[in-house]
Design a protein around this nucleic acid. Structure first.
Lengths: 136, 136
DNA sequence: TCTGAATTTGGACTGATTCCAAAGTTGGTA
DNA sequence: TACCAACTTTGGAATCAGTCCAAATTCAGA
């Protein structure tokens, strides 16, 4: 967290109050908020922050590689601050909560003969199922 | 295709002209059209088909398990008629085209200790990379 | 303190999708 | 064959997510 802000400053970021609260809201494990949720939570600390600024800041964090965009359904994108540890996602089909699961060291490989000549650069795995609360 | 229409009729579907053209448009390998693309192509065969009907029909096909929804980015959902052969997706980060890749027989497993108590029911893998045309 | 560049803001705008009430069709029955 | 109730389709309004923009604000350095 502090290191995140530090890294950003080193990359020439002006560290404004708005950016700071957005970064703070995105702190933690298994955090996958929508832009609107980030806006709402940031607004609790800095009441007048605008939606546009939240979108701007999230976009910058993504461009800098500090936050990942996750699109697990056709709804709002979610923002995942766990950008420095390879992992995948476990999505509850009931309540839509998301958990990070560490990437097994051997995933990401696609046999050449199945790759259609693509130069594969990344892999995302989404596991779907019911979380303990939702399976009743 | 014919079998698809047959299956639908068996499930009590009224086979209207609109539903037929939507099903026809979604025929083939590596087909991943957006709802708007389906609407456009269906409109070439049945000029007055409405967007709402296309959305309705796609939704019904998905509910029946005959078509899969694919949300690989934050944009429009894509509809994949290859619902009966387990497969994953290879997405070009340049031109966004999508190819189906057969699911390796051993994927889909998540070690219990990583599953956070979820009852895992499915897995989707998205490989990203540049297609032959886009890697220059 | 001043100033130019970076940042924020609210609102308009776009794209994707859903919702809805009215109009049109359909298959089965009398 | 006519009729009806249920099923479908339709176009437009409404909603949700996200982008764009010009004006106002704020910042860091001289």
């Amino acid at each position: 967290m502090t290191d995140l802000l530090e890294r950003l400053r080193e990359r020439g970021w002006r560290l404004t109050a708005q950016r700071r609260v957005v970064a703070e809201v995105l702190n933690g494990e298994h955090v996958h908020l929508t832009a609107d949720e980030v806006h709402e939570r940031a607004g609790q600390r800095l009441p007048e922050i605008s939606r546009a600024t939240v979108y701007n800041t999230l976009g910058e964090l993504v461009a800098l590689g500090e936050v990942l965009e996750v699109a697990t359904d056709g709804r709002a994108k979610r923002y995942d601050p766990n950008a420095h540890r390879p992992h995948h996602h476990l999505v509850c089909t009931g309540c839509r909560t998301i958990r990070d699961v560490p990437a097994p060291p051997d995933t990401g490989l696609l046999p050449d003969d199945a790759a259609f000549g693509f130069a594969v650069t990344g892999v995302e795995i989404t596991y779907r199922g019911l979380c303990p609360d939702c399976r009743g």
